[in-house]
Write a protein that binds this DNA or RNA. Structure first.
Lengths: 244, 244
DNA sequence: TCAATGCAAGTGTGATCACAAATCAAATAA
DNA sequence: TTATTTGATTTGTGATCACACTTGCATTGA
């Protein structure tokens, strides 16, 4: 018995989970994704293959392939010089991203609202408590946890929409808007924003009652907020720079 | 003067277009894309790096990176065995793809309908003539030209929507539905379908009058047709296979 | 005859090297 | 001092190699 496929007749193999051989390239890719969505890289920052390979303690090979993948999903940008950077923020691009996210994530949540079972609803309902918890002990700006929790919440919903086509597109959109969002969340945090979870509560309520329209509306409000906030901030800076 | 950047002061350089150094990887990627959208690969077909490298007369390096990129945009599929294949067709996946295409391409054409100038409209209007031409001399099934013309027509419109976010997503969707479409077009051709350009005329008319809603409706009808056709065909086969 | 074993060919992954292009800095000339 | 040039370093790209895993086929055993 050296076959890799688990057979029902084998009582031992039945309890063993497949080990799943993750390649180095996959780890590099995941790591860069995480950094991008979390906004750890600044817009317009240039990334080099050898630099990342050193930082990730691997050779250049897995890095260059991971970069290539991120470039095709527009999470990174290939300059004509053949160097790669994280795309800069422009107002047009922000509007473009927001419109696409409203369109696609709105559709996904509308689908999910009619398909989530009580167990899944309980999961996202439980997450609301974590926001309360974070707000209670707001001694330090825990931006990282905020970002992660927000991501988990949204994708728990999107995953329930049951579309293997829409979900990767949403991931791509988050990858592209990650650097912007981070800036916005920092700005929120400085501006003393308090109730970041308000729309999330509305979303949970709407999904619990299978109200697709209200879920979509609340989602649109939720994802629009950081964009409009950042937009007004950028416009103010542009005006100031113009007058100076 | 050995600087590569064109300077305004140089009257010769001003007339020269940048030559654009395309890498081997880019050519491989484009070639595989073309093959995929055109449906040259069959669903479930397994692709090997060395096999493609031989066929494209290059080393394995550019091929493996191109394959990696195509896998991330779901144009190809990575099996747990680490071999890669073109994704098989299932009814669920077809419905999923069609819904996403209606959502996103519908939005793109609605945007384009309000933004295309008379020059762009004249371009797509001119393409209608090519369909008439093809229908006139229908001595052989020129599926390749049909596919190419259809693609050019649609993307001429999508390009005018002005969204740098939506267009790559539409390209990804075409990449994913390419293998299905080819099968459907062959089936159309066998079934003696005549007026493949009917909805295209409606689309041009709607755009010329800036009627976004009618343009969207006609587009939905246009892209739904091959899917519903293929769906009924697959269902018939499934039923036949079941009774046999 | 059929299933299990063992060997050989094929395949993906990662590392390393060679080369060309780009970038940066110091040196030189106006 | 400023602009240009020259040279050294850095960087991306492609080729090749080594290794591990998978697959397929022939051999061996019952």
């Amino acid at each position: 018995m050296q076959k890799a496929t688990a057979e029902k007749s084998d009582p031992i193999a039945a309890q063993l989970a497949p080990v799943g051989r993750e390649t180095v390239q996959d780890r590099v890719y995941s790591e860069l994704r995480r950094a991008l969505i979390g906004g750890l890289f600044e817009p317009s920052q240039i990334l080099t293959i050898r630099g990342l390979a050193d930082a990730l303690m691997t050779s250049t090979m897995p890095v260059r392939e991971a970069l290539g993948r991120l470039i095709t999903e527009k999470a990174l940008e290939a300059l004509p010089n053949r160097s790669v950077r994280v795309p800069p923020i422009t107002l047009d691009r922000m509007d473009d991203l927001l419109r696409a996210r409203i369109l696609i994530e709105g559709e996904a949540i509308a689908l999910a609202a009619t398909r989530m079972n009580s167990r899944q609803i309980a999961t996202i309902e439980g997450m609301l408590g974590e926001w309360d918890e974070m707000r209670a002990l707001k001694h330090k700006k825990d931006v990282d946890r905020e970002v992660t929790l927000n991501q988990t919440f949204h994708f728990e919903i999107y995953r329930a929409c049951g579309s293997a086509v829409l979900i990767p597109m949403i991931e791509s959109l988050w990858l592209q808007s990650g650097p912007c969002i981070r800036v916005a969340i920092y700005a929120f945090s400085e501006a003393g924003e308090v109730d970041t979870a308000h729309y999330h509560r509305t979303i949970v309520k709407a999904i619990a009652t299978q109200d697709a329209k209200e879920a979509r509306d609340a989602l649109v409000a939720d994802i629009s907020r950081p964009f409009t906030f950042l937009r007004s901030k950028l416009e103010a800076e542009a005006k100031k720079g113009l007058s100076a």
